[in-house]
Nucleic acid binder design. Structure first.
Length: 354
DNA sequence: AAGTCGGGGCG
DNA sequence: CGCCCAGACTT
């Protein structure tokens, strides 16, 4: 039996019941594919339901504000996905009459839709014979064929894409693509795959040569850099709190935060804050800072290690911000703004009175 | 070709 | 801790 037939037979027995598999409507399928980029299904699923409920159609999503979209995305990470999602929704709604492109090539022109996502939508919605290559596919193919080309090298990307396309069942690309990904997720998992019950065992090079644990190969990434973040929770007598929008192009773009003082080392006293402050916040304000957490919170990201401290400053009124060039906002409705998880956790613990 | 971009879960 | 997850985009 052919490779693709074995995978599909396995899939028909073992497929999970997932909401985006019940439809050919490109809107929910596109939404799910964006959400699941570098994200486990268990983590993305609740967000998928939230989004479908809040934005039942691409027009609802297009008519929302970016702030609203980011707020709903809060906690899912890789926020450029949310910004691109919203941008593409507006494009589809206003320029394309709400109709998604229906070919791989056209789909790839959409913001946030790359090689994988275009293949997924084109095959699931329109039966176009284009093979998906995601983390699951890399793993299944590298093991079954014993390919040790690093999957994140230029040659590896090309090699696996060509192989995947060759193996594709072109009469039912939608089922084959689902099958190989589901197989990678459930049977041929990264750690301790279930080789004993595997229908591909006898022809699997990695299994026969005991290479399961060393495949797929991957070039190691650069080491993470450490940073020290000091957030100033400046609260006035009416429970207004100062926040700002992160604009630049870096991490957490367009999310909100408390005024931030980044320091080259751990800070323990207000005078440290004063020496590192670039917001030009008046000294007499910073002097009142009370350290909320003695031990910095370790916030681990894929490419960064953050040591985060929160400093609470109670003052009578926040009028001093008029003298600052930065655009801080006074708010007593902090819950309505999208914030990074490390700030969300602080807000939940600190408990502003509403 | 290498960096950047989140957060959670698992061994 | 290190690795991985239905990757895309920038430099």
């Amino acid at each position: 039996m052919k490779f693709h037939n074995k995978l599909i037979d396995w899939y028909l027995v073992n497929a999970r019941d997932l909401p985006w598999r019940k439809t050919q409507d490109p809107y929910p399928i596109w939404l799910s594919e964006i959400m699941l980029q570098q994200t486990r299904i268990s983590q993305g699923l609740p967000y998928f339901f939230k989004f479908i409920e809040e934005f039942p159609t691409v027009f609802h999503l297009a008519n929302a504000s970016e702030d609203q979209v980011l707020k709903l995305w809060q906690g899912l990470g890789y926020y450029s996905r949310a910004r691109n999602l919203h941008s593409t929704a507006k494009h589809v709604a206003y320029n394309l009459n709400g109709i998604f492109p229906n070919t791989y090539k056209e789909l790839k022109t959409l913001k946030g839709v790359g090689d994988y996502t275009a293949s997924a939508i084109a095959s699931f919605c329109y039966r176009e014979p284009v093979a998906v290559v995601d983390g699951n596919v890399y793993r299944v193919l590298s093991r079954f064929f014993g390919i040790d080309t690093p999957i994140n090298s230029t040659e590896g990307v090309k090699e696996f894409k060509n192989l995947a396309q060759k193996l594709l069942d072109k009469k039912q690309p939608h089922i084959y693509n689902q099958a190989i990904m589901e197989f990678g997720a459930l049977q041929c998992s990264p750690k301790s795959p279930d080789c004993n019950s595997c229908p591909l065992q006898t022809n699997c090079v990695a299994f026969q040569q005991d290479l399961i644990s060393s495949l797929p190969r991957k070039l190691k990434k650069t080491k993470v850099q450490e940073k020290f973040y000091n957030y100033l929770v400046i609260v006035d007598s009416r429970e207004n709190v100062l926040i700002e929008k992160r604009t630049g192009n870096g991490i957490w773009k367009n999310l909100y935060q408390f005024p931030l003082i980044e320091s080259p080392k751990d800070c323990n006293l207000p005078k440290d804050l004063i020496s590192f402050d670039e917001n030009k916040i008046p000294q007499e304000i910073l002097e009142k800072a009370l350290l909320y957490n003695e031990e910095p919170i370790k916030h681990i990201l894929s490419h960064r290690k953050l040591w985060v401290k929160f400093w609470v400053i109670n003052i009578e009124n926040l009028n001093f911000i008029e003298n600052l060039s930065k655009s801080f906002i006074m708010t007593n409705q902090i819950d309505t703004f999208a914030v990074p998880v490390v700030i969300e956790k602080f807000i939940d613990t600190y408990g502003f009175s509403k």
